[in-house]
């Protein structure tokens, strides 16, 4: 079995800035301070009207290649994690192979996961590399959830932002560069909670779109089946009651203890929930990385964005063990350990 390493990562945030002042102007009953006090979020970015997830993915990948770590011709597999693809078919990754000018001798496909997606992507990439099917896998996460958010839905508006990231997973480390060896994984799925975080209309189960009405509960926007619906309580409960077990399981598989881990990077959902789940996991605050203030919850991109920042700011050094954990829509979760 070959080892698999995270070589490097880049990310792209689109141009349209949605700060708390703007949300406050749209929803005057909500104060700027109150929005950021709980979520920990001050800014998010939205893709331009004519910009798709495929476009964001393309930019993130081009930025990755500009770093000069790898030539395009050396990439032999492309995986894209998205829930807002350009088309029903073909898979956006095929279009990206052509746009990026990657070899025609590569495999390329999309997979549909949200906040757990990056960890699953690493799992797939490691599988491809360690079984000898690929040597250099480009894993892209790209999401334009902004398209799914109803203009009256102030809660989801404060949380989500658009972004894309590109990460290279290779069979060989790069000399003189801190790379993360991908160790063992733990996964979890509870499809009974699918209805708690969902865009109901527009795909084949309910094709009609455009006729759904806004539903209000106690004068507050609650749902519209054409748009993203999130039952905050259910997602909160799923997270705080299941993530600690998942983390423990991952620690056991890797034969390490909670104390052996130098840094925990969880999906950056919102700061309030992260704080609760951190305490439930008994992780000290100084080992728990938070990077959400200037990006918002960018779904499958939060973990690679946070990882990128932790590396750039020298929070991670050689020999460090970093535990990644994603959880959310599906309901789905996954965790893995990186050794730098």
């Amino acid at each position: 079995m070959h080892s698999a390493y995270i070589i490097d990562t880049t990310y792209f945030l689109p141009e349209i800035l949605i700060d708390n002042e703007r949300i406050n102007a749209e929803h005057p009953e909500w104060s700027v301070d109150k929005i950021s006090a709980k979520t920990g979020i001050e800014k998010r970015y939205y893709a331009k009207e004519d910009q798709t997830s495929g476009d964001l993915a393309y930019i993130a990948a081009e930025q990755f290649f500009e770093k000069g770590i790898i030539e395009k011709s050396k990439v032999d597999f492309l995986i894209l994690c998205t829930q807002s693809p350009d088309y029903f078919l073909p898979t956006t990754a095929c279009i990206l192979q052509d746009r990026l000018g990657l070899s025609k001798g590569i495999g390329a496909f999309d997979f549909n996961l949200g906040c757990s997606g990056f960890v699953y992507g690493l799992g797939i990439a490691k599988g491809l590399v360690s079984s000898g099917q690929a040597k250099n896998v480009l894993l892209i996460t790209a999401e334009t959830y902004s398209r799914f958010i109803n203009p009256n839905d102030k809660k989801n508006k404060t949380i989500f932002g658009d972004a894309a990231t590109a990460t290279l997973i290779s069979s060989e480390p790069v000399l003189g560069k801190p790379v993360g060896k991908i160790l063992h994984f733990s996964y979890g799925t509870d499809g009974s909670g699918a209805k708690h975080l969902i865009v109901k209309n527009g795909a084949l189960r309910n094709m009609q779109k455009g006729n759904a009405a806004d539903v209000y509960v106690a004068d507050e926007f609650y749902s519209n089946d054409d748009y993203l619906f999130m039952d905050g309580k259910q997602i909160f409960d799923f997270t705080v009651f299941n993530v600690p077990g998942l983390v423990n399981n991952c620690l056991q598989k890797n034969e390490v203890t909670l104390e052996d881990i130098d840094l925990y990077i969880f999906h950056q959902a919102n700061e309030f929930m992260l704080d609760r789940v951190r305490r439930m996991c008994k992780i000290p605050a100084e080992k728990f990385y938070i990077f959400i203030k200037d990006t918002g919850n960018t779904v499958s991109s939060t973990i690679p964005i946070a990882l990128n920042h932790a590396l750039e700011n020298n929070v991670i050094s050689k020999g460090n063990k970093v535990l990644l954990c994603g959880f959310g829509v599906g309901l789905s979760m996954g965790a893995t350990l990186l050794e730098y």
């Binding site: 709980k38 309580k233 705080v240």
Partner: peptide, 16 residues
């Protein structure tokens, strides 16, 4: 600082 998120968290704490 009380809001729906505080309520959700409190209920999770009680359940736990």
């Amino acid at each position: 600082s009380w809001d729906s998120l505080t309520a959700i968290s409190l209920l999770a704490e009680i359940k736990y």
